[in-house]
Design a protein around this nucleic acid. Sequence first.
DNA 1: GTCAGGCTTCAAGTGCACTTGAAGTCAAGC
DNA 2: GCTTGACTTCAAGTGCACTTGAAGCCTGAC
Lengths: 143, 143
Amino acid sequence: MDTALTIGEVAKRSGVATSALRFYEAEGLIHSERTDSGHRRYPRAVIRRVAFIVFAQKIGLSLDEIRTELAKLPSHRVPERADWAKLSAGWTKRIRARIAELEKLEAGLTECIGCGCLSLDRCKLANPGDRIAARGPGPRFWM
Amino acid sequence: MDTALTIGEVAKRSGVATSALRFYEAEGLIHSERTDSGHRRYPRAVIRRVAFIVFAQKIGLSLDEIRTELAKLPSHRVPERADWAKLSAGWTKRIRARIAELEKLEAGLTECIGCGCLSLDRCKLANPGDRIAARGPGPRFWM
DNA sequence: GTCAGGCTTCAAGTGCACTTGAAGTCAAGC
DNA sequence: GCTTGACTTCAAGTGCACTTGAAGCCTGAC
């Protein structure tokens, strides 16, 4: 391994805390070799993998979904441009849907609150029925 | 109080669980009177207040921020259309900013991953430096 | 050799927005 | 009168994505 990286170097290069990197590794999102003394050594390619994780999180994917995506990468060789592009192919749709929802909400600011109809009975935007249901406990964002 | 509502009735009308309503009350987002036996009785206006909370959450406000917003409502009278409209005045800006960020991310799907530059060193979209920092622990969504 | 700083593991804590459970009281219909 | 279901409080649990702390080993510069 000519240019393997320590966890600290990966943290510095990626902006992701060492604790987060260890967490990602425990979660199976990234992998490392170990030195004789047990210290982690990451291949160069891990940087891109971490970048992908950060990007995917911004798009709104959970670590669970990201793990699934990353599992699609070829394991027998270092993934190249086309491999990454394939993964992110579906994201545009996801982003556009999110944008569409926000635009609907924006329209609601005038139509719904502005007109005085802000009532859960009638307002399609507040949409009580289908809002949270069946997502389990925990904080909920956007939808 | 001719038409005061029980917590169950409010839950049914708003689609918000009774446990959540009690939680909102403990957090000071809504208020109730009590019967002699200690049961909650909500004024009719609480429905609109709950609707506002649900809507504000969709926009991305935390309960803390929503509490602050709600505190701006007149306390000596039932708030009317204009009062609610005033609260949501700043939201359009917030939504537009969010949309703009999503559009930037969408562009990055082609420019950044597509072109093969997905590297935290160079890619402005992954943007490691200013991503999470100083927000404390806990899950992070969107930015 | 020694000492700071980086590495290791593992358990527990954090913040948000609730939910769930236990243990009990209250209200309405039969 | 009795049961059913809705209500009460309070403490603890939940899911996510980590962070923090304790206790200790390793590495490199002086």
